[in-house]
Amino acid sequence: MFQFIVRRILIALVTIFAISIMSFVIIQLPPGDFLTSYVASLASQGDSVSEQVVQAMRENYGLDQPIYVQYLKWIGGVVQGDFGRSLEWGVPVADLIWDRLAMSLMVGLSSVLFVWSLAIPIGVYSATNQYSLIDYISTFLGFLGLAIPNFMLALVLMWIAFSAFGQDVGGLFSPEFQDAPWSFEKFINLLSHLWIPMIVVGTAGTAGLIRTMRANMLDEINQPYVETARAKGLSERRNIWKYPVRVALNPFISTVGYALPSLIGGEIIVAVVLNLPTIGPILLRGLLSQDMFLAGAIVLLLSVLTVLGTLLSDILLALLDPRIRME
């Protein structure tokens, strides 16, 4: 087991290194650099910058140096927690992203919890009562959830929250808590805002996971080991939750790792609609304006989170399923 974990960690480090190069290359792929688009946007507003100033900025940001030097400078800083300055915002990238990343994690984790706590029981019920009325209803609602565009669900929920509960909507905090230090009241305020993005981001995933759980369970509940447990006199409920659910959960655990990045990708539109202070919107802006240090940092961090998540789910899976440990 120890060996297994060490090997996985080493593989993860190599992967992260490869990812850092990839992220850097991706950022560099669009023609031109930040200064080109900066100058272009100034020009479109009727301003112009002298060639000298542009040249000075280029040197200042290191944009005139060979690409591998740029990479080494960048990654060297990253290792020390310095992601460079955001060219567009004029502040260190680190100041911009940590809070937003935390908020993204918060929204992501709460919707994963939302999805699991809804999808697993419903999936188990649908499988054990296949073709029952509730099976059909949950399937129908699940597909409905999958089909409704997230931004529309977001708008509808905002309207409900506003008109029925008189809640101020949008963002994750009420204005008075926006810049307040962390307190219990602020936390409660966060929870009262969090449910909308949680539901919006989670709904589509719930539908998918209900289907997955249902299918996995249907594969398992007629297996002989379930029959054996039943023949032993185990009650139906204990049997279901101890044996087939346990085996059917494995595919879920192996997807924990990439749940987060896919949530952040899927969340951008919702975050824009709901005005959430999360990472998605600034990633989008960073990419549009070729703010390479900002976009690079976010792409890198998300990738690292994916790798760490995968590492985590590998280890979890090995703990839960003895067959995985044998290799």
């Binding site: 297996q223 002989p224 080991y225 029959e227 054996t228 447990a229 023949a231 101890k242 044996y243 346990r246 085996v247 839960l320 399923d321 003895p322 067959r323």
Partner: peptide, 17 residues
Amino acid sequence: IAMIFQEPMTSLSPVHT
């Protein structure tokens, strides 16, 4: 009344000792 099944391969749970 106890019962043993045809499939010793799968009559035991894969993830429990």
